[in-house]
Design a protein around this nucleic acid. Structure first.
Length: 214
DNA sequence: ACCCAGGGTCATA
DNA sequence: TATGACCATGGG
């Protein structure tokens, strides 16, 4: 059986699910906060925490950076691991403030920005790339558990591939287009939520015919 | 009651 | 470098 290309996977997912309209947020800073809040938790819980921040008029870098850490933690409680995330958010807000905000940040080249983001306590590769792509409009391909699971299943690479290897794999095969990267990642997540989790529903999966292990 | 979700850090070997 | 423990809520 012929292996489906990454581009064909994108086209098939898009024609099946349509545009996903990621990332839902009013400001780039909200995207950055959301990227931390959704770490290892459902988007619904992250959204509850975001709305709670809005209710308290706390969704700004100054208020987050200067707020009492315990107070902040209670406000974002619904997102889980909230003591850690309160610390993470304060570091991120401080970085955002010291960098001069969105307008100054986007002037910097992708590679340098990525390095700076990874230096922030609580920002790992996936969160950094989510911020680069969805908050700063930089073409940095986001890898997550869904991406790995799907493309291991499609035999594009194996389980031993680390984050950077997987990111390189896609960035070498796709045009570096911000809109494409945004849509592709969102589609992979939407698809992953429906299919091939613990109980495969692969008979109706739009990629079933491409899935050697189905 | 168990399992996982739009991860990351830290200690240990 | 490579696992494992830990964080912790809410929904299935």
């Amino acid at each position: 059986m012929k292996k489906i290309t990454a581009t064909d996977v994108y086209q098939r997912l898009f024609s099946t699910y349509g545009a996903q309209h990621w990332w839902p947020a009013d400001t780039p800073f909200e995207v950055m906060v959301g990227a931390v809040l959704t770490q290892n938790c459902t988007w619904a819980n992250a959204e509850t925490a975001l709305n709670n921040l809005k209710t308290h008029d706390m969704l700004h870098c100054e208020s987050i950076a200067t707020s009492n850490q315990q107070h902040l933690a209670e406000i974002i409680r619904a997102s889980g691991t909230f003591q850690q995330k309160a610390r993470y958010l304060q570091q991120l807000a401080l970085f955002y403030y010291k960098s001069g905000g969105h307008a100054e940040l986007i002037k910097q080249p992708l590679k340098l920005l990525r390095k700076q983001l990874l230096g922030i306590y609580g920002i790992g590769p996936e969160t950094a790339d989510s911020i680069l792509l969805y908050a700063l409009d930089k073409p940095s391909f986001v890898i997550d558990a869904y991406t790995k699971r799907l493309f291991v299943r499609l035999k594009h690479f194996n389980h031993q591939f680390d984050y950077d290897s997987m990111q390189n794999y896609f960035e070498q095969r796709l045009p570096h287009d911000v809109a494409l990267f945004k849509e592709f990642h969102a589609l992979i997540v939407s698809h992953g939520k429906r299919y091939c989790q613990t109980k495969p529903l692969c008979s109706q999966c739009p990629l079933a015919a491409c899935c050697p292990t189905a």
